[in-house]
């Protein structure tokens, strides 16, 4: 579905993304990880078509990204970017309805568009906020309204830049689950995530970036090793096992003797329920 080869992007002489290749198949959920400034967001912007790469190229469904009309592209991929300006008193509903823009003409919205926007708000769990002013919402509520807008766009490819920012623990899980379901229904998703354990729980593949290079690429099992994490984050970790079987990254305080506690059973049970 999404194929990037030897992607490179530089500002001046500094390469923010250098020689990164990836191939996202339908039904796959990818997570891009890495330390601050590793080039994760830049990579995502290259994949969205927002930035033109200085080397390499990106293909979506076999067609180069550059060959797409913006509108045709927007019918295939949606992005959830880091932060939105909120200068104008749009209602949450109006923001969600904007997700239908790639599918609409200049003025009128069809009843179908309104139906999808309402459904999207419900799916993002913010149906009760629909007539509220978007700028008056809290950060987390806004994020979920943005999510609804992305849902309403009905994309095949989802690109998410730190989508769990501002969200509480429950809504983080909900959002990740929604992305995961999206991929199981034949779509695909690429998300930049800081939370390696969320990545480990939901991702099919993880790409770790270091200084713009691909440092590791593979299943969570293959990528989340103490060696890789040390190389990418300069962080000492031990890898435990989540009750669902996926790796569980536990950072270790390098300065002190690690203090180990057994995982709390109740919490595990809850996670297991959510993942199934």
């Amino acid at each position: 579905m999404l194929k990037a080869e030897n992607l490179g992007y530089r500002v001046g002489t500094r390469w923010l993304v250098n020689d990164v290749s990836l191939h996202v198949e339908p039904g796959e959920f990818w997570v891009i990880g890495g330390a601050n400034g590793a080039g994760k967001s830049t990579l995502l912007r290259l994949l969205s078509g927002e930035l033109a790469p200085h080397s390499g190229h990106v293909e979506l469904k076999g067609t180069p990204l550059r060959a797409y009309e913006p509108r045709a592209l927007a019918r295939l991929r949606a992005c959830l970017a880091q932060d939105l300006s909120a200068s104008f008193p749009f209602t949450a509903y109006e923001v969600a309805l904007m997700g239908r823009i790639p599918w609409q003409g200049q003025w009128a919205s069809r009843p179908h568009d309104h139906y999808i926007a309402k459904e999207a708000l419900a799916e993002a769990g913010v149906a009760h906020l629909e007539s509220r002013d978007y700028p008056s919402l809290s950060g987390g509520e806004r994020r979920r309204v943005d999510m609804a807008r992305t849902i309403a766009q009905e994309p095949k490819l989802l690109l998410l830049d730190e989508p769990t920012n501002h969200l509480d623990a429950k809504h983080q899980i909900e959002l990740m689950e929604w992305c995961w379901r999206h991929t199981r229904q034949g779509g695909c998703a690429v998300a930049v995530l800081h939370d390696l354990n969320l990545a480990a729980r939901f991702a099919d593949r993880i790409l770790l970036l270091k200084d713009g290079h691909a440092a590791a690429l593979g299943t969570p099992e293959e990528v989340l090793t103490p060696e890789n994490l040390r190389a990418c984050f300069n962080l000492e970790c031990v890898i435990w096992r989540h009750p669902s079987g996926c790796p569980w990254v536990v950072p270790v305080d390098t300065a002190q003797t690690p203090r180990f506690h057994p995982p709390v059973a109740r919490c595990n049970a809850g996670l297991q329920g959510a993942a199934s």
Binding site: E69, P70, A81, S87, P102, Q104
Partner: peptide, 21 residues
């Protein structure tokens, strides 16, 4: 005739691009 496009643009330049503007 720019109503809808301006709505998208009001969210941000990047968001407008993502919405096909």
């Amino acid at each position: 005739p720019l109503g809808r496009a301006l709505n998208a643009l009001a969210l941000g330049d990047r968001e407008a691009y993502h919405l096909g503007i």
